[in-house]
Amino acid sequence: MLIGLGIVHIVLTLFAGPFLDGFTRKYIKANLAHSREGPLVGPWQTFVDLFKLLGKEDLFTAGGIISLQMLAPLVALSSALVASLMVPLSGIAPLGAQSDMIVFLYTIGLGAVAVVIGAMATGSPYAYAGSLREISLYLIVEPVLMLAMLGAMALSRSLHLEDQLRWHYAQGFSLPMLIGAVAVFVALQAQFGKLPFDIAEAEQEVISGPFIEISGPRLALLRWFFLSRQFVFAGLFCTVFLPWGLTAYPVVNLLITLVKIFVVYSLIGLIDAVMPRVRIDQALRVYFAVLIIALLGAVLAFVSA
């Protein structure tokens, strides 16, 4: 049964990510914010892009390390998919009993590392600049997520995401978790790679940074990794930090989670559409403030636990 659920998770992550992205692109960004028509195929545009990229010529850099360029997108996408198996989208996760919060954080981090190594393996200075921005941001965003999850751990006395979800549902509203949820929501904007924190890619500054030398199917896989990662993070946020709506039926739970994810995507897409990109030093300052808030939440959680 867990294997079946695992297949559901993988398929869902692979397809819901691009769909939700396409949705926000068309209806939130183009129609609502930009006063323009947007893609003619509506929410399916991201799939069209990915499919088109899958068939394009695959370019490697002559000065780079081809094997790592080749492996990086594959490892990245699979890490996001494995991480999706750890998120209890329907109350239970296929790998929920075999992993915990720390494993989850590191698994999803593995993808980012793969992207960075793949980017550096191309040898392009823009890729380096973008990757290092990504890591600099990661250094301050990751603790936000960690602290919020520490709060969840302290309250639920378990590092397992499923236990945290169940505890939270049984317990109902709690202030530390609310603070954690706020902090994580702000962190999501960076984890999604959306404006105002799409600093790593920043076409206007470092020409898409890590992606600059990556093309064709590998670019598709990398895009897919980012889209999957967005979905996984949104799933984590909606289950662990907004656990209301847990029933005894996994299918119902899954549907409820998807509705919540949809709302979260729309909000993030809206912020993305109406914000300019901040500079990396400004972003660090913003997230430091968020970090303090998250720390407050964690301290509250440890005190009240």
């Binding site: 370019l59 490697f60 850099t61 002559a62 000065g63 594959l74 191309t122 392009s124 030398e213 896989l221």
Partner: peptide
């Protein structure tokens, strides 16, 4: 992931940075 990568079997080329 590898299946997706090979799905449309595009050609490869090595180009300078």
């Amino acid at each position: 992931s590898f299946g997706l990568y090979r799905l449309l079997n595009p050609s490869r080329r090595v180009s300078p940075v």
